[in-house]
Deep mutational scan, measured.
Amino acid sequence: IRCIGVSNRDFVEGMSGGTWVDVVLEHGGCVTVMAQDKPTVDIELVTTTVSNMAEVRSYCYEASISDMASDSRCPTQGEAYLDKQSDTQYVCKRTLVDRGWGNGCGLFGKGSLVTCAKFTCSKKMTGKSIQPENLEYRIMLSVHGSQHSGMIVNDTGYETDENRAKVEVTPNSPRAEATLGGFGSLGLDCEPRTGLDFSDLYYLTMNNKHWLVHKEWFHDIPLPWHAGADTGTPHWNNKEALVEFKDAHAKRQTVVVLGSQEGAVHTALAGALEAEMDGAKGKLFSGHLKCRLKMDKLRLKGVSYSLCTAAFTFTKVPAETLHGTVTVEVQYAGTDGPCKIPVQMAVDMQTLTPVGRLITANPVITESTENSKMMLELDPPFGDSYIVIGVGDKKITHHWHRSGSTIGKAFEATVRGAKRMAVLGDTAWDFGSVGGVFNSLGKGIHQIFGAAFKSLFGGMSWFSQILIGTLLVWLGLNTKNGSISLTCLALGGVMIFLSTAVSA
C-alpha cells in the first residue's frame, strides 16, 4: 500500500470489461488503480535517471590570480610587451599612462603600459546536455494484498515479495511487465516523455548541487567559461569578468580578483528545477510519464477462499488518510488461513446495510499462523458509518465519521480527471477507425466523469442509474429551450454510458 502517505494521489477506475487503462505517473504523486474483478494496485514513479550526459560548457565562479607582471614604455618608444601576453592562462590589459620627467621619461606624453596576471579557477559549475534516449524511469508497484503497516513504502525485498514489484522503462524499451506472483502480471506500455523539453534544458552542477536550467539563461551567464570537458589546462574565455584592473600608474597597475560568485548564482537559480546525482547518473524529480496498463493477466487472489471465522482485533486505531479513506490494521487469532476477511461498512448496526467501498479488493489472510496481521483500506461514505470486521458474535466494529460532501468530492474528481486527460493529450485517442474513435470517446468520458459518477451514484443499482439517464434524455427531447435540451441530452447520455461502463 504505497499511496496512503502521498498527498498527491489519483484514483483511476477501469471500465467494466476493459483490459487496459491509461494513467499519468508523476514525481511526488501516486496512482491507485481499481477495476472490477482485479486486485487494487498502487503505482508510483520513484526516480527518473539520466546517463551519458555530455559537458557543454563550464563557468568559473571563484578564481585566484598570481605571478603579476607589468612592462611600460616612454612616449615614442613603441608598445610595451610581455611574453605572458601569448599565454592563455594569463589575463592581460594594455593601456596608456601619462609619462614625463617625473617618472623617468625625457618627453612628456602618453606611454604604453601592459599588465598580466595568471588566472586560476578555484571553483566552477558545469552544464551538461541531456539526450531523451538516455532517460530511465523506475516504477514501483504494490498490490493491496496481505501486507501490514511495516511494509508500507518499503522498497527492500521486492524481489521475493509477490505484493510488490519494480520495473524500469526507457525510450528504447518502453514496454515492461511486472510479475506479482499469485496476482498474475501487469503489463506497462509507457510513452517516455517527461513533459520537459530537454532540447531547451541543461543539467547544471555547482558545488555538489544540481538544477535543470534553460539553455539561453545558461549561455548568457557573465562569467569566465570554457567549452567542452575539462582537459586539465582549460582555456578560459572572458577571464576579465572576475578580474579587475585598478587605476594605472606610470610603471605598474594593481590587479585584484573578485570574490566568489556562488551567492549571486544561487539567487539567479531561484525557482529552477532541482535535481540530484546518483553516482555518474543524474536524478530528476520533475515531469511525468504516461503509461497504458494492460490488466488482462491480472487476477484476484483468494476468490475461492472461505470466510475467516475466528476473532479479529484492531492492532491500531483506524486512521484517516490524506485522501479521506480509512486504513485499518487487524490481527487474526485463527489458524484456518488462508481465508477471506469479512469486512464491510454499514450505516447502522441493526440492518448492516453496506455503504462505501473497499479500496483493498478481496482482502485475505494468507498465513495459517496465529496472530497474522493484515492492513486494508476503505472508502467510507460522508457522515457517520460503522466499520464491521468478522462474522457472528466475534465481529468487531468501529464508529467512523467522514466530513465533507459527495458533491465536493465529485467536483474534485472531475477536475482531476480533466487534468489527466489534458496530460494524456492525443495519445488517449485513436482515429484509425470508426470503432477506435468511439472507443476513445468512451475512454475520455470515463477518465473525466467516472470518479464523479461513482461518488454521486455508486450506491444505486445499474438499472436505477439507466432509468435516471433515460429520464434526462426524455426531458431533453421534450424541452423547447435549446440549451436546457442539449444539457439534459448530454447528461442523460453520459449517465447511461457510465452506468453500463463503470464497474460497481
Rank of each mutant, 00 (worst) to 15 (best):
I1N: 03
I1Y: 03
R2D: 09
C3Y: 13
I4K: 06
V6Y: 03
D10Q: 02
E13R: 01
G14S: 09
S16Y: 05
G18L: 00
G18Q: 01
E26L: 02
H27L: 14
G28E: 08
G29S: 15
C30I: 04
V33C: 07
A35N: 05
A35T: 12
Q36N: 08
K38W: 07
D42K: 07
L45H: 10
V46H: 04
V46E: 13
T47D: 00
T47G: 15
T49P: 00
T49W: 02
M53T: 08
M53Q: 03
A54H: 04
V56I: 15
C60T: 04
E62I: 10
S64D: 04
I65Y: 02
S66P: 09
A69P: 00
S70D: 07
D71G: 09
D71S: 07
D71E: 15
D71R: 02
S72T: 11
S72R: 01
G78E: 06
A80P: 14
D83S: 11
K84Q: 14
Q85T: 03
D87Q: 09
T88N: 15
Q89T: 05
Y90L: 07
R94W: 12
T95K: 12
L96E: 08
D98N: 11
D98F: 09
G104S: 12
C105H: 05
C105G: 06
G106N: 01
L107W: 10
F108P: 03
F108W: 10
G109R: 01
K110N: 09
K110Y: 06
G111Q: 04
G111A: 02
S112G: 11
L113G: 00
V114G: 03
A117D: 02
A117V: 15
F119L: 11
F119D: 08
K124R: 07
K128N: 00
S129H: 01
Q131C: 06
E133I: 08
N134W: 11
Y137K: 04
R138K: 12
R138A: 11
I139P: 00
M140S: 10
M140D: 08
H144T: 02
H144W: 12
Q147Y: 15
Q147H: 00
S149K: 00
G150Y: 00
M151G: 15
V153H: 12
V153M: 08
D155E: 11
G157P: 14
G157R: 09
Y158I: 02
T160F: 01
E162H: 12
N163L: 01
N163Y: 12
R164K: 15
A165F: 03
A165T: 03
T170Q: 06
P171Y: 05
P171F: 07
N172Q: 04
A176H: 04
T179C: 14
G182N: 13
G184E: 13
L186I: 15
C190P: 04
L196C: 10
S199D: 14
Y202C: 13
Y202M: 13
Y202W: 09
Y203I: 13
Y203V: 06
Y203H: 12
Y203A: 14
T205D: 05
T205E: 11
T205K: 10
W211K: 08
E216N: 07
W217S: 06
H219C: 03
L223T: 09
P224C: 08
P224Q: 08
W225I: 05
W225A: 07
H226P: 00
H226A: 13
H226W: 02
A229Y: 08
T231N: 15
P234S: 14
H235I: 02
E240K: 13
A248H: 08
H249N: 01
H249P: 04
A250Q: 07
R252F: 05
R252P: 02
Q253L: 02
V255T: 00
V257T: 11
L258N: 10
G263Y: 09
G263P: 08
A264Q: 11
V265W: 13
H266M: 13
G271V: 01
A272V: 10
L273R: 11
E274N: 06
M277S: 12
D278K: 13
D278S: 15
G279D: 15
A280C: 01
G282I: 13
L284S: 01
L284G: 00
S286W: 14
G287H: 00
H288D: 10
L289V: 10
K290W: 10
C291V: 02
C291S: 08
R292L: 00
L293E: 04
L293S: 01
D296H: 14
D296A: 14
L298A: 02
R299H: 11
R299K: 12
L300H: 06
G302C: 00
V303N: 01
S304V: 12
Y305A: 03
Y305K: 03
Y305R: 00
L307N: 01
A310P: 00
F312H: 05
F312L: 10
F312S: 12
T313D: 00
T313R: 05
T313H: 03
F314M: 05
K316W: 12
V317D: 15
V317Q: 08
T321W: 11
V328F: 05
E329F: 09
V330R: 02
V330E: 08
Q331W: 05
Q331C: 09
Y332P: 06
A333V: 15
A333I: 06
A333M: 07
G334D: 06
T335I: 13
G337H: 13
P338F: 07
K340V: 02
K340P: 02
I341R: 02
I341E: 09
I341P: 07
M345I: 15
A346V: 03
D348H: 07
M349C: 01
V355K: 06
V355C: 07
V355H: 07
G356R: 10
G356D: 05
L358V: 14
A361I: 06
V364G: 01
E367D: 15
E367M: 06
E370V: 04
K373S: 00
M374R: 08
E377P: 02
D379E: 05
P380Q: 01
P381E: 04
P381G: 01
G383Q: 08
G383T: 02
D384S: 03
S385M: 13
Y386N: 07
I387N: 13
I387K: 03
V388S: 15
V388N: 09
V388W: 00
I389M: 12
G390W: 08
G390V: 03
G392I: 01
K394W: 02
K395W: 06
K395F: 07
T397G: 11
W400A: 07
W400T: 08
H401E: 14
R402W: 06
G404N: 08
T406Q: 12
I407F: 10
E412R: 00
E412N: 09
A413I: 01
A413V: 10
G417T: 09
K419M: 09
M421H: 12
V423S: 12
G425H: 09
T427F: 12
A428H: 04
G432I: 00
G436W: 02
N439K: 15
K443I: 12
K443D: 10
G444M: 13
I448G: 06
F449Q: 12
G450Q: 11
G450K: 12
S455Y: 06
L456W: 07
F457I: 12
W462L: 11
W462E: 02
F463M: 12
F463D: 08
S464E: 04
S464A: 08
I466S: 03
G476P: 03
L477C: 14
L477R: 01
N478C: 10
T479S: 15
K480M: 08
S483V: 01
S483W: 06
I484Y: 08
S485H: 06
L486N: 03
T487I: 12
T487D: 11
L489T: 14
A490T: 11
L491T: 12
M495F: 04
I496R: 02
L498F: 12
S499C: 12
S499G: 03
